[in-house]
Each structure stands twice: as structure tokens, then as C-alpha cells.
Computed example of a mutant assay.
Amino acid sequence: MGLFRRNPFGHILFLKKWLIRIFGIITHKRYRGFNELKIDGSEIIRALPDRNVLFISNHQTYFADVVAMFHVFNASLKGRADNIKNIGYIWQPKLNIYYVAASETMREGLLPRILAYAGAITVERTWRAKGKDIQREVNLNDTENIKVALSDGWVITFPQGTTKSFKPVRKGTAHIIKQHKPIVVPIVIDGFRRAFDKKGLRIKKKNILQSMVIKEPLQIDYDNESIDEIVEKIEIAIEQHSSFLKVVSAEEINEKEELNKLRHWRKNY
């Protein structure tokens, strides 16, 4: 690889590699040390092609979620079976991993700007800006950038566009799927909201068992399924569909509390 070789967005790959290495080393203990990350489905990652893969996931923090995915994807590609043991996997990271993030978020401070160089595809949200609800036309440059990223590699997106649970999936993701026909891999995460602050930069609580479940790619009829059908399929796949909401009995609440106790990871000394 040439020292000044660039990706389609003009980022120097040598610099991007070192950014991923440095941040990978700095953040590793957030998922295997202060807290513990339980992974299921790493074999699915290893079976994917190098390009035109779209990961869809629920969202709990601005940055901790996607950083964890960078760890899991690279560890899986280096042969780790559902774990991120031995940080050596980050030395030769996959450089064509991108993630979709709000432009407003990535402009808030120096650290987000640095993280953006590691692979952010920034988009202008059409429904919210500066904490207020708005209505804005889709920026065609944003969708074009996602197309370029899919042509070059893997793209991570959080189709609800918010860290709040059970918010509707934005139809833009379904349009991207119909237009570019990527392999769509659902991911369901949990525990990140309890472990980190909203931005995912500060550790809020230690000894939390986080989880990441990587599911089999969705079966989608790109030509015949409607946008609404694909949206519903996404909501079900990332477990954010209204059917997952129900009236919970007292017995189920008690069972959930016991499960939450078990989810607290205790390090063995």
C-alpha cells in the first residue's frame, strides 16, 4: 500500500490505519476490561464479501456502538470466535468500513472530527437539527456518498436515526436497499446505554455485560418488495418493531430483574 494512497473520499489510508490502531488500543478495555462484550454471530462476518454490505442496527450511544463494531468486525476477520481477545487483530484493520453519522454530531468538537476520518459518512438529518424538529429535503450528495461507500466496502447505519428505543425506522434506509441491493446484515446491541453516557465517550458504569448479536443477512426481494415492507422487515430484524412492545406482567418484570443482575459482569481475580 502506497504511503499516500487514498480511499474514494480522499482520506489517506495510512493515516486512517493508524487512527484505527490508536483508538482501538485506547478503547479495547471498554469492551474487555471495565466492561465485557458478549458476541454472537462472528462467523457471519467472516462469510461476507468485501464490498456492498450494509449493517443495520439499533442505536444506544453516538460513538460506543460503532467503535464496538469496528472491534468485533476486525476480530472476526482475524479468526476470533465471538470474542475480541488479543488486541493484535487491530494491527491490520479492514480499512473499507464506513458508518453513517449525522453531520451535526461529527462537528461537535475535535474528537468527533478525528473519529470522522476513521470512516464517517456524514449526512444532514432531514427531520431534526439543533434539538428541534424540522422538515428538510434529502441532500443528494449524502445518498451518493453512501453509494460510493457501499461500492468500496461495508457500511454501518442506524436506521432509526436516534439513540431512543422503538422510534420508527427512516424510509431512507429502505430506499438505499432497493436502489443499491446490498447484503443487509442486522445487528442487535444491548448494555451500551447502561455502560456509557449518551455520546458513548465517558464510561458511566463499570462491570456491565454488553451484548452484540449479528444475525443472518435479510432475505429481500429488491425489485418487488415495497419501501414499507422493507422498513417493517428492518424494524423486526433489529428488534425495534412495535410487536416487541407488550404489557409486561409482574412475574415477567421479576424475571427481567433477575436477568439484569446476571448481566452484570464480575471480573474473576
Rank of each mutant, 00 (worst) to 15 (best):
V100I: 11
I134R: 03
H59E: 03
S76C: 09
F23Y: 08
K94Q: 10
R136L: 07
N145M: 06
M106R: 11
I134V: 06
R46L: 08
S42C: 07
G88C: 12
I44D: 03
L110I: 13
G33F: 10
K29C: 11
I97E: 00
L48K: 02
F63D: 01
F73P: 01
T61N: 07
I87E: 03
A116T: 03
I44R: 04
K147S: 11
D82R: 07
M69V: 11
V148S: 07
Y117R: 14
P49E: 04
I56S: 01
I146H: 00
R80T: 03
N86A: 15
A68V: 04
K130D: 06
F55T: 00
K132D: 06
F63N: 02
Y89N: 05
M106Y: 04
N83F: 10
K38D: 08
M106S: 06
N86W: 11
K85W: 10
Y99H: 08
V72D: 01
L37K: 01
V100Q: 02
G88Q: 14
R128Y: 10
I45S: 02
K29N: 11
I114L: 12
T122I: 06
I134L: 03
H28N: 09
R107D: 12
A116C: 09
V138H: 10
A68K: 00
L77G: 03
I121D: 00
G153N: 01
E108K: 15
L110V: 12
I114W: 08
D65Y: 06
G88F: 13
T126S: 12
Y89C: 05
D82E: 08
L111Y: 09
N141Q: 15
G88D: 14
L115F: 05
D65R: 03
I114S: 11
T126L: 13
G24Q: 02
W91T: 13
A68H: 01
N58Y: 04
V138S: 13
N83A: 11
N52T: 02
R107E: 12
T27K: 02
E124D: 14
A118G: 14
V148L: 12
H28E: 08
Y99I: 04
Y98N: 01
I56M: 04
S76H: 06
I25M: 09
T61E: 02
D50K: 15
Y89P: 01
V67S: 04
S42Q: 04
N58R: 05
A47T: 10
I44C: 06
R107P: 05
E124L: 14
V53N: 00
K29R: 13
Y99F: 15
I26T: 08
A64F: 06
E124N: 15
E144G: 11
G33N: 06
N83H: 13
K130W: 05
L150Y: 00
G33S: 08
K147L: 13
N83D: 13
Y31M: 01
K132E: 11
N145L: 08
H28Y: 08
Y62D: 14
T126I: 12
K85N: 15
K38Y: 10
T105P: 08
Y99R: 06
R46A: 13
L37Q: 01
A120C: 05
R51Q: 12
Q60V: 06
H59Y: 02
S57L: 10
G41P: 04
P112C: 11
T105E: 11
L110G: 09
V148G: 07
R107S: 14
S57G: 09
T126Y: 07
I26H: 03
A118L: 14
L140N: 13
